[in-house]
């Protein structure tokens, strides 16, 4: 089963994207989203990087800082199909994936696609759904396909899940299982805006919701091309070694019970490539890796009980690792 891409887009020439075009388009999306979320350009940049790295994004923050706004703005900036799922305790897996229902006219079961069949999926308050519903997302997120009643349906490309969750209010929630968390390429927090940004926010929203005024600056096909272009960014052996060193360091860290997975390594490198391309470069730098290490690695680590009791968190652990792992793994050289 296939779905046509969004209508009204002229077919793009299949010429490879130059770093400058990549940078310009990415900046277009960035400016667009910034129109809605003021003063958070770094977070937005990382969110775009995750999207172009074909990763899934987990936005974890307190209510009201604009998690959903960010997700929506990102979705609106890209002209593609956007689906929204509000996760609630009574949400069923079939609501996500779709269900076969009996069509009396055809006298046959017909597959009704669920909310997951879109380019951008906004999963709001994902930890409020029951574990079985959360688990329904697993196959979709990793394999980009859905299997219902023995039939496998391919999902669209690009495909990205942007989930939000509230870390503070834990009552009546089902914390994401290990495997699910590992499927999110990055976890971002938005944080409160600073005073100027908040003032600007008030001014802008006096008359209308900027989200409504948002116009798409790229289409799905462009995104596919950008994804392909990002994959061509050069990764030097020293850089790969650095990434592996970082991930290895999470596994041997005394404060961590479970370190980052090889999937984390892959996703860190993919995001690194995108970030480099967004900077107009055709090669990645350790600086890119360092920007991404906390968002990509921190949510996958399981700290030891002692660390948790002592108030330590995994972000601090990853930052600490960044401070100690040599960028070039010769002793005495950096």
């Amino acid at each position: 089963m296939t779905f046509e891409s969004s209508p009204g887009q002229p077919p793009q020439a299949p010429a490879p994207l130059s770093p400058q075009e990549f940078k310009a388009t990415a900046e277009g999306i960035l400016t667009n989203v910034e129109w809605v979320i003021e003063g958070k350009s770094h977070t937005i940049k990382l969110a775009i990087a995750v999207m172009l790295a074909e990763g899934h994004l987990l936005l974890e923050d307190v209510p009201g800082v604009g998690k959903t706004q960010l997700a929506k703005a990102l979705a609106r900036s890209v002209d593609c199909s956007v689906r929204r799922i509000q996760f609630t305790p009574d949400l069923l897996p079939s609501d996500v994936t779709g269900v076969s229902i009996f069509d009396p006219e055809k006298r046959d079961f017909v597959f009704k696609p669920g909310a997951i069949f879109g380019n951008l999926i906004l999963g709001d308050e994902i930890n409020r759904a029951s574990p079985k519903t959360q688990a329904a997302l697993l196959e979709c997120m990793e394999e980009r396909q859905v299997t219902v009643d023995g039939n496998t349906y391919k999902l669209r490309s690009p495909f990205m899940v942007i989930a939000t969750q509230n870390p503070v209010e834990m009552e009546g929630t089902y914390p994401l299982p290990e495997a699910q968390r590992d499927r999110f390429a990055a976890r971002l927090a938005i944080g409160y805006p600073d005073i100027n940004a908040e003032l600007a926010l008030l001014d802008r929203r006096e008359e209308y919701n900027p989200l409504d005024a948002l116009r798409p600056v790229a289409d799905a096909e462009m995104i596919v091309r950008m994804i392909a272009a990002a994959r061509a960014v050069h990764l030097a052996p020293e850089l790969k070694r650095y990434v592996v060193d970082l991930v290895t360091a999470t596994r041997s860290n005394a404060q961590v019970r479970l370190g980052a997975s090889p999937r984390a390594t892959l996703q860190l490198l993919r995001c690194t490539q995108v970030l480099a391309a967004m900077d107009g470069r055709d090669f990645a730098l350790p600086d890119d890796v360092q920007q991404l290490a906390v968002p990509v690695l921190a949510h996958r680590l399981i700290p030891t009980t002692e660390t948790t009791m002592g108030g330590g968190d995994t972000k601090a652990i990853v930052s600490d690792i960044l401070r100690h792992v040599p960028v070039v793994s010769h002793p005495g050289r950096y």
């Binding site: 730098l285 350790p286 600086d287 360092q290 960044l322 401070r323 100690h324 792992v325 040599p326 960028v327 070039v328 005495g332 050289r333 950096y334």
Partner: peptide
């Protein structure tokens, strides 16, 4: 003071 964990740009 430069440490091993600084990238060339940071250094």
């Amino acid at each position: 003071g430069l440490t091993d964990s600084l990238t060339p740009r940071q250094a």
